[in-house]
Nucleic acid binder design. Structure first.
Lengths: 345, 345
DNA sequence: CTGAAAGCGCTTACAG
DNA sequence: CTGAAAGCGCTTACAG
């Protein structure tokens, strides 16, 4: 007669079974159950089989909470971004996710809306939950806001240079040059009256891209016109409104460099609404190369920053610190950008 | 001489201080530190002050991990959505977040890309991490996939009716009627050749909205034409491609009902690319009323499903189960939809 | 008003 | 090849 454990999934008892219940059902110690699960120590074949059957029958799922507390590693990384509806960030999230998943880490996504209070709140939350790693794409965070995270030994990487120092790794495109290259292309096409729709200039990112615009224009000996510089909030809506103002000028620009693709797509909307031909009457260049850039009409000429790769690199930097030795000089990994010529300029 | 604790933030010792270190610094037991923090028991004013000073000086942050293990509540809710770049879902996430935040819960966001494997993976992850609540906006999940979650006592709410049963609460618009009302509006405007760009018809949501289209057309005595029914993948890109096919028909439609706004915006793109006037030559109606619907040109006529409110209600259902008595009949909360007439139809 | 001790569910050094 | 026990960092029933 084959012996059958009478362990069964008990639907009356609330909660999931614990390792002790599995041990009892398989008639071994929980030490052995733990090793059967982890493979950290050899377990006799028959014992292994009994344990696996018990796990199956009880529907056992180890508590990641208890495991994390014991091991002092949560196998979780946090990703804080300003706007999940901007496809740049989900692409980055996927790159990160893929990089860390094979090492058993889960990436948690937090959307701050670019609000500094929310940014700090999520960092605190991440510290309290003892994430192992943190990737920050933030606008209003300062190094001091990360003191607890650093002290907690949380591996941290900043997307963009604004949070270097304190042992924080950085992965970053050269935003100033990327913006400059976009402007350069417009200059090459013969444009001289080139506007920009900048991001919020109080942010490091917005300032860098604006600087690239100004510097390249100056390099070409083009007189800067303050009326051609508008700041918006990185969104399509913001880009639309800023472009509408530019088009209403007595002397409107013949081209506009938008500091990200979402605003560039908004500029396309504005041109269409005003009956302005793109690129005939207004050339539009973006920055990022989100997936939608290729899909809009006209397809957007832009400078590609490889979001997925940025996420992947951030994940690899995290893994080096999470899996490797604790102290290392902070790394800064540059990411190459690339002009993508389509139909809008 | 005022006595000063010599407790200091020790930057050499890795990791955050524990409650024991705070207790030692404040010269009390950790029991008292715990109560000073929670307020669950009165603490003498002087003691409280000493503890607070020690916490401050040491930079103590309680471990949510240890707390969760002890209390068997993680104060975390998970939200699983198919596509964060569709603004409907971030809006829903914000509604959920706001509802649960005041009770001390954090909402974790997972983006599956509509992939069933990812959906199951995130549910398992949520169970392993012992989240207290789970909100599911999924396409390929079945009730059996939630057995572990239910057994773990995780409060669960489904956005849409596809996961009712097993004690799961539901918050749902009447998708069939919402779609029907969109079609009704087109009928009232005199259209008879009405196409639809449906969602994936294998999904409950896609099927319901398609059924609404068919049923209302039949009710009006309009002969159904299979050539006017196209399925796409809920994205702007998908909507663009489907609309292009519709417009290339020998007998193109005079109106199209799109099963969500993102596809409707894609249809607008396609019409523009083909030089088709909207609404003159093609009326376009969407469904959802995402923020962008009001911003596109022409502004989208659509049927509003209040994403933020859906999220809020989901949060309230969760809270009832998480904070209240364990067993209750599953609830199903209907959400009202509403036709929003703008310029595209 | 305060503390010693047990226990949440795991992992692993130590022992046999 | 396997087990008893300690311990991760908290909370709380029990006791004084």
């Amino acid at each position: 007669v084959p012996e059958r454990s009478d362990a069964q999934i008990d639907l009356d008892r609330p909660g999931l079974p614990t390792i002790d219940e599995v041990a009892a059902a398989a008639q071994v110690s929980k030490t052995t159950v733990s090793h059967a699960l982890s493979g950290n120590r050899p377990v006799a074949a028959g014992t292994q089989a009994r344990i696996e059957r018990a796990i199956e029958e009880l529907g056992y799922r180890p508590s990641a909470l208890a495991r994390s507390l014991k091991l002092a590693r949560s196998h979780t990384v946090g990703l804080i971004v300003p706007d999940v509806t901007n496809p740049f960030y989900p692409a980055l999230a996927r790159g990160l996710q893929e990089a860390v998943a094979s090492y058993g880490y889960l990436a948690l996504l937090a959307d701050t809306g670019g609000d500094g209070t929310q940014e700090r709140r999520f960092v605190d939350e991440a510290v309290d939950r003892r994430v192992d790693g943190l990737v920050l794409s933030t606008f209003d965070l300062h190094e001091a806001d990360l003191d607890d995270a650093v002290r907690a030994g949380i591996a941290t990487v900043s997307i963009g240079p604004q949070l270097s120092g304190r042992g924080i790794d950085v992965v970053s495109a050269d935003d100033e040059r990327a913006a400059g290259d976009a402007v350069e292309y417009l200059l090459e096409r013969g444009h001289r009256r080139i506007a920009t729709i900048a991001g919020p200039t109080a942010t490091t990112l917005g300032a860098a891209r604006l600087a690239g615009y100004r510097q390249r224009l100056a390099g070409a000996g083009v007189e800067p016109d303050p009326a051609l510089v508008r700041a918006a909030d990185w969104t399509r809506d913001g880009g639309h409104a800023a472009a509408a103002q530019l088009l209403a000028l007595a002397a409107p620009p013949t081209a506009v460099f938008c500091a990200n693709d979402m605003m560039a797509i908004g500029a396309l909307d504005a041109a269409r609404a005003a009956g302005i031909d793109v690129p005939g009457q207004l050339a539009v260049v973006g920055l990022d190369d989100i997936e939608a850039a290729a899909l809009v009409t006209p397809a957007l000429t832009t400078v590609r920053i490889p979001a997925h790769e940025v996420g992947r690199i951030a994940g690899e930097l995290l893994l080096k610190r999470m899996e490797g030795p604790r102290t290392r000089e902070p790394l800064s990994v540059p990411v190459a950008h690339k002009l993508i010529v389509r139909n809008s300029a």
